[in-house]
Design a protein around this nucleic acid. Structure first.
Lengths: 116, 116
DNA sequence: AGTAAATTACGAACATTTTTGTAACCGCGG
DNA sequence: CCGCGGTTACAAAAATGTTCGTAATTTACT
C-alpha cells in the first residue's frame, strides 16, 4: 500500500488499520499494557522487524503509545491511547458484521463436524 | 496478506476490506449500480486486472453483486448487496474516527498555509 | 571469580514472498 | 479498429522474513 489515491479519511484510516497485524495488535493491547517481547510471544508469526514497524506506524497514527524505560535490562511498554480505545468498538463492529454475514463458516477448513 | 493467523472475524473481515481498493469501490458503488468500465474510470489508478480481482473478492465475500448481461456489447453491472450496504456505515465510522483523530491534517504535504 | 551466553528492544542489510502492474489476447458488434 | 469485460503470461514493485549486530545487565557454567 504505497500511497493514497484520495484524501478520503476512510482510505487514510484503512491504510493504517488495513494489514494483518494492526487489528491483532490492537486486540492484544486492549488487555492492557504490554512489553515488546510480550507482543512477540502473543503472535509469534510476525517477525520482530515487522512488529516494530507496525507498532511505530500505530504510534505515529496516535493509536498506541510507546513508553521507553531508562534502565537495563531494556523495557519498552506499549498501550492504547484514548483514541486507540475508541477505535476498538469500531473494529469490533466490523467483526460482528462479518460474523453475521458468514456465520461460523470456517475459512480454513478445520472442524468439519458441526452437528455431532 | 497470504493467510490468516487467527479465526477472529475481525481479521477475516479486514482481509477482505484491508487493501486500498475495497473501501474505495464500496464507496463508488454506494451511489448505485456501476458498470465495470465506470469503475475503471472512477479510479483510473487501479489496473483493470486488480479491479477485476478486487471485485471478485468482494463478490465472493458477499459485499457486491455482479450481474452479467447477455447481449453484445458486453455489459456487466456491479452493485452492493444488502450486506454491503450495512457495511457502509461501519467504514464510515472508521472514517469519522480518523478524521476526529487527525483533524484536517493533510498527510500528503499539500496546502501548507493554514492561518493566512 | 571470570567468562560466555541469554535477555531486552531494536536497526540495517539482504533474501524471499506476495502483490500489483503491463501487455497481449479473446470473441463480437458498431 | 476500437470498446466491452475479461483472462493469461510475464515483469516490476512492495511487503515481509532472516540474519547479524548493538549496549548493558543478569544468569549459567566451570
Amino acid at each position: 500500500m504505497k500511497d493514497l489515491v484520495s484524501r478520503c479519511p476512510i482510505e487514510e484510516g484503512m491504510q493504517v488499520l488495513g494489514g494483518r497485524w494492526p487489528t491483532l495488535l490492537i486486540y492484544y493491547l486492549k488487555d492492557g499494557t504490554k512489553r515488546f517481547s510480550d507482543l512477540r510471544r502473543d503472535n509469534p508469526t510476525v517477525s520482530h522487524r515487522i512488529l516494530t514497524l507496525e507498532l511505530r506506524k500505530l504510534e505515529k497514527a496516535g493509536i498506541v503509545r510507546r513508553t521507553s524505560h531508562e534502565g537495563y535490562p531494556l523495557k519498552v511498554e506499549y498501550d492504547l491511547t484514548p483514541a486507540g480505545l475508541t477505535l476498538v468498538p469500531l473494529i469490533d463492529a466490523i467483526g460482528d458484521w462479518w460474523e453475521g454475514l458468514h456465520p461460523d463458516a470456517d475459512v480454513d477448513g478445520a472442524e468439519k463436524q458441526s452437528a455431532a
